[in-house]
Design a protein around this nucleic acid. Sequence first.
RNA 1: GCCCGAGUGGCGAAACAGGUAGACGCGGCGGACUCAAAAUCCGUUGUCCUUAUAGACGUGCGGGUUCGAAUCCCGCCUCGGGCACCA
Length: 827
Amino acid sequence: MALPYDVKRIEKKWQEKWLEDKTYELDVTSSKPKSYILCMYPYPSGPAHQGHVRNYTFGDLLVRYRTMQGENVLSPIGFDSFGLPAENAAIKTGEHPRPFTEAKITELKESLIRLGASYDWSRVIKSHDPNYIRWNQYIFLKFFKNGLAYRKKAPVNWCPGCQTVLANEQVLPDGTCERSHDVVEQHELNQWFFKITTYAEDLLNGLEDLNWPDRVKTMQRNWIGKSTGAEFDLKIKDHENLKLRVFTTRPDTSFGMTYAVIAPEHPLTLQLTTKENEVHVRDLIERVVKENEIKRLSSEGELTKRGAFTGSYAINPFNNKEIPIFIADYVLMAYGTGAIMAVPAEDERDFEFANIYNLPIVRTTQPPDDFGDGPYSGNGIKINSDWLNGLEINEAKEKAISWLESEGIGEKKVNYRLRDWLISRQRYWGCPIPVVYCENCGLVGVDESDLPILAPDDVEFLPTGDSPLKRHELFVNTLCPQCGELAKRETDTMDTFVDSSWYFLRFIDPHNEFEPFSKDLVEKFMPVDQYIGGVEHAILHLLYARFYSRAFVDLELSPKNAVEPFRQLFTQGMIRLNGSKMSKSKGNLVAPLKYFDTFGADSLRLFHLFVGPPQDDVDWTDQTDEVIEGMSRFLARVYRLSAPKFAQDEDGLRNKFKEYELRPETNEDSQIEKLRHRTIKRVTESFEKWAFNSAVATLMEFTNALTKYAYSGARKETINEAIDTLLLLLCPMAPHITAELYELRNSKHIHEQRWPTFDAKIAKEDSVTLVVQINGKLKDKIDVPSDITEDDAIKLANSSTKISEHLTGVEVKRIVSRPPRLVNFVI
RNA sequence: GCCCGAGUGGCGAAACAGGUAGACGCGGCGGACUCAAAAUCCGUUGUCCUUAUAGACGUGCGGGUUCGAAUCCCGCCUCGGGCACCA
């Protein structure tokens, strides 16, 4: 296809100009209203892929649009440059991850520039940069000193593919690693954790006011998993000195407790097991220990094999009845107290278990009359519950809790599903944890003045699964910062999600050598006004960043206005190719590069904006190339319209435009002027709603109308203003060609112009189509003035021959009119 | 199983707040230009019936509310996503 202009030359010219002029570098001192627009910073895996293009096109559109609206826009970019792929490549090829990563960053940066994305390149952050490592470690030490970072031995998720442990958030529901998709194993290891659970309640409450997609908020709520109930002690028969503590969300059902269940790993398990039951109990424990959590929770339908009677009995404190104690794998040690009271009549799992072991089932809530025999967890009146009888569930809960408290055996209790964030990784290419193990002093944080602690370069990358740091004597052996004796360094590095938990703050003050960031600047530029990224980070990154932000406020690193980092979040849809997610690992990328070289970045950007709503997934199909070509066809039309004399077309095409006329404004001219105002209105409103596809469509309509107008002989002043408006409205979407055309026409830089404004009065249509219906069916359309009165509208409708045909000899029962759009005769 | 979201021409989609369903684009068809093609421009394009006029049908399915429903309500179906022995 022959374009009327040299795409490559024009795009390169403007990309260079934006860099040279530093068009999008932030003026920190500006008094204009600030606007912080941020796309999730990318992991550098090579040139940008279509997912990046989509993400950064949305971001760039907003950056340019808000800038034109007179806002002081902060638009930074960086690279999430620590991570496994670089290290895995090192193991394969022997090449050190640093040059490998740097090369990828260069490629990615290059393609972002070719996309025409506008960033403040003076603020680039790379997470593997020693400067960033330094402050990352500084923050770790702050956390460590304040009890937010701690080390403990715990069962953790081990990914054999990645050869490292994972946080709970990095394990998929099917028990596989979210990166490598290997089945995750449970290992008991000593690891570093961040105390995110401290903020569970706060993280939950904070969601309320965020302008985020509901589904992301819901996902975070589910993940935090708050449940309110009671915890209390059960006495144990023949064990005067022992108590069994249980957690329940339904203290109102306590009278229906007919047995108790403890987790196999519960500390009391062996003590409570009598000799004759020992074999079964030990069998179960052995099996459970071997299995990982996921497998254990997924062994549905085999309940018989999943529990065992201990031989001991507890006393239900509510009615003093003896109840048998079982162990079962469906009770988890990590949640609540690791022990439950079982109420089979009101809990499905307990009900199933009770049926298998023939345990009594006693209803304590009256179900509706037509309810069968199954477990009932709905509302109702309490029965079989002595002093709770007759109460509603919620009243009964309160009363049961008060009773527990007055007896001194229990209290109200809130539990969360959220567990602390495991941040140790047994890998080299990450931020080292700045801690030393000393025989005298124990765990000692490195001196701040010694930061950053950098991993040595002269290491061997071997596929052993051990971090190369472990084998590096010079790194490992050090002196204790406290007592000066020989000590050993921590060789684990931090989860890369640590790096991304605060990078948006460092962007505000990226060259600060004295602190991670200035509190004053953060106060000025936080929160991020618009955050844009993939929904796959709904829990991981977005939860961790919220945790960090809270901790920073508490540690007085950040001002209070930074407590919620992302005021507004937009999650874009994925790109699919033949139904499956487009990704490098699947090898099904359709690289943007080939489009840069042919139709140009502007066309590719326009495609991503036009193809559908930004939050929807995009199907990359056989037709896609043709649609992208269609976008470049549209831009070519804009070019021919805006600068016909410069269009490199054959003569026949160029000369179709008549010379513009100098003349007083005719009705046709003022219609174009009206359309211009209407177009500004529609595009502006579409931008605000993120309806970019509609904005493009509106500009296509405008272009078509203007082309027709120009062909038929246009008034010079009117057409020129309309074309300039078209270019201004289009420039956040297609920044290169509009800049070129605006310069050709006006010798000015379009990206320094203001966003056009409209006059609502002029934008108003002065004639509209009146729809005339009979019984709600369309019968006629009449053009009427938009300020027509109701009476006139009805008269006009009545006088239409198409209508009178239907109305002669029939009784009109009712006339519904909504002037100026509709008149409906009901007959 | 539970909770969210979505289903509109051959395709991607649009439709403010219940008021012309299908804007805009891709593809198709027809035409102009050309020796021819490409490019470009013009016209046409939901389905059915009809020479046309006119009409009927049509927003996943079945009901309902309304003068009027893609839009609101009830009940289903399909797809996508999240959660799922969390007591």
